[in-house]
Amino acid sequence: MLSRHGLGKPAALYFTHTWNQRLEGDLTPGGKLSIYYDPHRMPLARDYLFGAPAQPITAHVKFSEQGPVQDKVLWSPAGILRHVDKDPLGYGSMLFQELVIPPDAEEVIVWFDYRSSDGQVHYDSDYGRNYAFRFLTRDVRPHELSSAANGSARQQGLAVHPRATQVRVRYRLLDKGVPGQLQEAPLKDTGKSDPEGHRIWVLPDAALPVGKPVVFDLAYQLNGRTYLDDNSGKHFMRK
């Protein structure tokens, strides 16, 4: 069910000017994290020059709700640019920073501020909620179940963080390659746990249409937030 892109690869967060926040790669405690940030998310001063240090944008990062904050000024590996490549995917001209995630991190919480030339400070913090990213490959793992009913059929399940709730699939049917409307299908908590203590959730066979490819991602609630696992932005697929 879950074939991951980027498994084992260093994680990168992209904050794009189209107001997408995307995680690619494998975000893991003890691993590295690159942050790519498009400054056009901020109300830039007219005299803002991409990559020039005079008007810094700073990433503030912590690894648990109550944890200490690291403040890191973003910089431009491409130098100072008079003409930038505004790419909606975040692969263009981006400010950058990198950090090491502590081994005891619970999640990555990040927000940004920008000090413009008029002295004002502007924030990009998801309206004060800050952007939070879980360790998805730790929170959600494939779990194979055998059917109790007929013994030979195999159901697919997920082993999910024990405190997660409202685990659901958000999916689209591909009809001749064209994606249909976004729909949701909830998974069912079996009440059982795997040896690591993750709860086993299953998607009923009838929940997803058959006969056509389905593109989906996973959503779940944890600590009052909704987290989305979209497989490094590429979604999962069932054929």
Binding site: G51, A78, G79, I80, G92
Partner: peptide
């Protein structure tokens, strides 16, 4: 891309003239 995405020293101006 557009000679403005390669790494150059951070105090340098990137772009086609560099």
């Amino acid at each position: 891309f557009i000679y403005s995405s390669g790494p150059v020293p951070s105090n340098n101006e990137g772009g086609p003239l560099n």
